[in-house]
Design a protein around this nucleic acid. Structure first.
Length: 871
RNA sequence: GGGGCCGUAGCUCAGUUGGGAGAGCGCUGCAUUCGCAUUGCAGAGGUCGGGAGUUCGAAUCUCCUCGGCUCCA
């Protein structure tokens, strides 16, 4: 039985029992900032448990792509060490939303395991929460599991919670005894179940959600009870294929074989095989994460990808792979998983490109680290030490990303020891700092309570066709200066898919509210309003959208679709939307692309979009099933969660996307499209900002005004402006040089006269005079020139620039040596007399001050001063 | 979200309590050579990422900002 069969049988089993199959959500959650990656099948149903969304189907089954890289049971550094933990895995699950409960859930699980899949009954163990007698009795009465195989555990193992507060409840797990050597693994189940003993493997967790955990820690009963189950596919496959290691199943063996053939090192199922296991596990995670829109970067989830990739690359180096190779494994992963997750097929080349470039950049990081490391060794050796301090190890790792284990290894080769304790201490400090500074965002509505006037109604949106309608307030929340409203029906579009929320007003005879913003919370559309006049009342009201603003927004939104299509035509199909903002002023579109777009490419894109606008193609908006929409080639946004029925927006054959937003009636309404900028937003992500309609026209007009002005000033044809300005700049530069050299020559011409006036003080040639120079730079140059003329001695030149006095002092080497005169010391004293300061090197120093009138006396007083210094 | 490091000539980088902007490679010219490689000499090329501040004086110190690298959450 293949893994593919097993996955399908699970889904089919529940489909036969009235469950609706729901596609896996992306591994990159699109609307949950608290979650780094989708880590359980229930993530996409969270809103249903929280009662902000209603379920479309009471019974659901799916196979969810999951990523777990942290948490108490899955430390990244442990993956690969054992045979059953993964960063990426699939979670099979069935759900009941207020439908069946414990009895059916237990019965079905038992039947699937023992009747369909024929797992021996005496090898299975069921665990229940210690106080959940109901579940305990069900296991003993509705299944034929051996009585001794039902075990009770406490909160840690058998009570499931979503977070600090929220839905929760007892759970019941099914474990399997995979056998093995009792001498090593032990035999008594109580010694094995829920310990880290690999002989007893958890296969399936059935969660019974019946409580809500309040903020004060107390539990209250939920009005409806839910079932949420999760079974790790990898483990079930291992069990059914009679393997003791997940890595020996057909989910992994092709990848491991490929690693062996690439590296020429055969897989060892024991300890040394960790290398193969780590790489196989990590390449799956990377393939799925990147296919769902994540990219390696330096923070957030991108950073997790980078760490995973580097860990795999490091293990690769242990197998002698010093060049990029992980990307070569991607086609194998896609071969195994592509049928279950067709999105992989579309993106193989893209995923490989991303992984390859990240592998290459890691090589660079390592090379740089090696250089710094050898510097450290050299420094320590010359200081007679053979210990690398914790600070140095930390700096190598923290600042330059050089792996600690590599540092240790290489230090050892050099006969050095490494202060790992010191390193760990610094890491702890770093972690603490980061943890303390993590703050949670406060929502504007925090602290106040919603007042419910009519329950169960959530602002039906009717704004696709209307912008003004009669409605009533069904919920209201009042804060210090605002009212948040939920209406029975609303024409206001809530922020979604990058399109900003509508503004406008809600009013009746007794009040007028200005709508500042509109957004979604689950199914509810919330209007953020401010009272303009009258007194807030709960009577029927008129809701009216600001039509002018909306018309500007929809132009930009439709233009975004045309831009997306044009980018794919000009740059290629690897272009994926990575973010979007559409408001009344402009549009911002982020997308995956590897290099800066050329002028030529930008022009092509702009031309394509405007050509499509001129065609005036009518928009075609339809509701159809997700699968049909995809079959027709409609573009879906990465990771977005779509229902079964989706809305598609199509402009002729040109652009076709899934989209819930508002659009123009025909492309011609956009009027005119202009790209204003293209820039880098992160590695591999570019951003285009553009404008449409009147804004674009206005920008063009403003630019022409500037050009007109320039043309006028330069008396030039528009085409010659560039060369003309360039010529002017070149000319200016060369003139400046000429002026500088002329004025220097002029100043230098008086030097000979000045040198003739030199005083000889105690055998030292001394010169002190006032010159005219354009800037302090020239004064310094003149100083050097003076010393060349004098050959030996002390020279001081003063000048006034912009009413401030400046001095330069030069002293020849022989005078420094014989008389201990230093230019820096001389100038420091003179600077003070000018109301400033000064300093420099023994050979040359400068000073300045504020009192220009004192300059003459200071220059005249130099001879006396030098005389005193020479004794 | 919180730290660390980096941004200097076309490229790789140096620049030591703040005191004349440098090296190697590359480029241009001249010489060497039948020609090329080589070698020698000369030269061009810089808003020291950007802005503000402190100072007589900032590549250097402080603050802000942009870009890159890196660690932690």
């Amino acid at each position: 039985m293949t893994s593919q069969d097993i996955r399908n049988q699970f889904i089919q089993y529940f489909k036969n029992r009235d469950h609706k199959f729901i596609r896996s959500a992306g591994v990159v959650p699109f609307d949950d900032p608290t979650l780094l990656f989708t880590n359980a099948g229930m993530n996409q149903f969270k809103g249903i448990f929280l009662e902000t969304e209603t379920a479309d189907h009471p019974r659901v089954v799916n196979s969810q792509k999951c990523i777990r890289v942290s948490g108490k049971h899955n430390d990244l550094e442990e993956v690969g060490r054992d045979t059953y933990h993964h960063t990426f895995f699939e979670m099979l699950g069935n759900w009941s939303f207020g439908d069946y409960y414990k009895e059916e859930a237990i019965k079905m699980a038992w039947e699937l395991f023992t009747e369909v899949w024929k797992i021996p009954k005496d090898k299975l163990y069921a665990t229940v929460y210690k106080d959940d007698d109901e579940a305990f009795d069900l296991w003993s009465n509705v299944t034929d599991i051996p009585k001794d195989n039902i075990l009770r555990f406490g909160e840690k193992d058998n009570f499931w919670e979503m977070g600090e507060t929220g839905p929760c409840g007892p759970c019941s797990e099914i474990h399997v005894d995979v056998g093995g050597d009792p001498a090593i693994n032990g035999s008594h189940p109580e010694l094995g179940v829920n310990t880290d003993n690999p002989r007893f493997m958890e296969l399936w967790n059935l969660v019974f959600i019946q409580y809500f955990r309040e903020a004060d820690g107390s539990l209250s009963e939920l009005p409806s009870k839910h079932v949420d189950t999760g079974a790790g596919l990898e483990r079930i496959v291992a069990c059914l294929q009679g393997k003791t290691s997940n890595y020996d199943t057909d989910l992994f063996t092709p990848i491991i074989d490929e690693i062996s053939s690439l590296t020429g090192v055969n897989y060892d199922p024991g300890e040394t095989g960790m290398t193969h296991r780590v790489i196989a596990d990590h390449v799956r995670m990377l393939t799925f994460a990147i296919s769902d829109g994540a990219l390696p970067s330096n923070d957030g989830r991108g950073y997790v990808l980078r760490r995973i990739l580097r860990r795999a690359a490091r293990f690769g180096r242990n197998l002698g792979m010093n060049e990029a190779f992980i990307y070569k494994l991607v086609p194998t992963v896609v071969k195994i998983m592509g049928d279950a997750y067709p999105e992989l097929h579309e993106r193989v080349a893209y995923i490989q490109k991303v992984i390859k470039s990240e592998e290459d950049s890691f090589s660079q990081t390592l090379d740089r680290g090696l250089q710094i490391f050898s510097g450290l060794i050299k420094e320590n050796k010359s200081a007679g030490r053979s210990l690398i301090s914790g600070e140095d190890v930390f700096k190598l790792y923290d600042t330059f990303g050089f792996p600690v284990d590599l540092t240790s290894l290489m230090a050892e080769e050099e006969g050095f020891t490494v202060d790992l304790t010191g390193f760990e201490a610094l890491m702890t400090v770093q972690r603490e700092k980061a943890r303390q500074s993590t703050q949670f965002k406060q929502t504007t509505t925090q602290g106040a309570e919603w007042k419910v006037l009519q329950a169960g109604i959530h602002s039906d949106f009717s704004g696709y066709s209307q912008h003004r309608l009669d409605t009533s307030v069904v919920q209201v929340l009042e804060t210090q200066d605002k009212f948040f409203l939920i209406l029975s029906q609303t024409p206001f579009y809530a922020e979604s898919g990058g399109q900003v929320g509508d503004t406008g007003r809600i009013y009746n005879a007794g009040m007028e509210l200005r709508v500042l913003d509109t957004r979604k919370d689950g199914d509810a559309i919330i209007h953020e309003t401010k009272l303009i006049s009258g007194k807030f009342n709960e009577e029927a009201a008129i809701a009216e959208v600001d039509v002018k603003r909306r018309s500007d927004i929809i132009k930009n939104h439709s233009a975004t679709h045309l831009l997306n299509a044009a980018l794919r035509k000009v740059l290629g199909d690897h272009v994926k939307q990575a973010g979007s903002l559409v408001n009344e002023d402009h549009l911002r579109f982020d997308f995956n692309h590897f290099e800066k777009m050329s002028k030529d490419e930008l022009t092509k894109v702009e031309k394509l979009v405007n050509a499509e606008i001129r065609k005036n193609t009518p928009v075609n908006i339809r509701q159809l099933s997700f699968d049909d929409a995809r079959a027709e080639g409609a573009l879906a946004f990465f990771g977005e969660k779509y229902g079964d029925e989706v809305r598609t927006v199509k402009f002729g054959d040109y652009s076709h996307e899934l989209c819930g937003g508002l659009h123009v009636n025909a492309s011609g309404d956009i009027g005119f499209f202009r790209i204003e900028s293209e820039s880098a937003i992160a590695a591999g992500v570019r951003r285009i900002e553009a404008v449409t309609g009147q804004t674009a026209e206005g920008n063009a007009r403003r630019e022409r005004a500037v050009l007109d002005q320039l043309r006028h000033i330069l008396a030039s044809d528009i085409h010659d402006l560039g060369t003309k300005v360039q010529n002017l700049l070149d000319e200016k530069k060369s003139l400046e040089k000429q002026v500088k050299s002329l004025s220097f020559d002029q100043a230098a011409s008086v030097l000979e006269e000045i040198v003739k006036k030199a005083h000889v003080i105690a055998g030292v040639n001394t010169v002190s005079d006032i010159v005219e120079v354009p800037d302090t730079e020239a004064l310094k140059d003149l100083g050097s020139e003076l010393m060349i003329l004098m050959g030996s001695g002390v020279g001081i030149l003063g000048t006034v620039i912009d009413e401030a006095p400046y001095l330069v002092c030069v002293v020849s080497e022989d005078v420094i040596a014989q008389h201990k005169l230093k230019a820096g010391n001389i100038v420091r004293e003179l600077g003070r007399k000018l109301g400033g300061g000064g300093g420099g090197k023994p050979q040359m120093a400068t000073a300045g001050g504020k009192d220009a009138k004192a300059l003459k006396d200071v220059i005249a007083g130099v001879y006396e001063m030098i005389g005193a210094l020479l004794g």
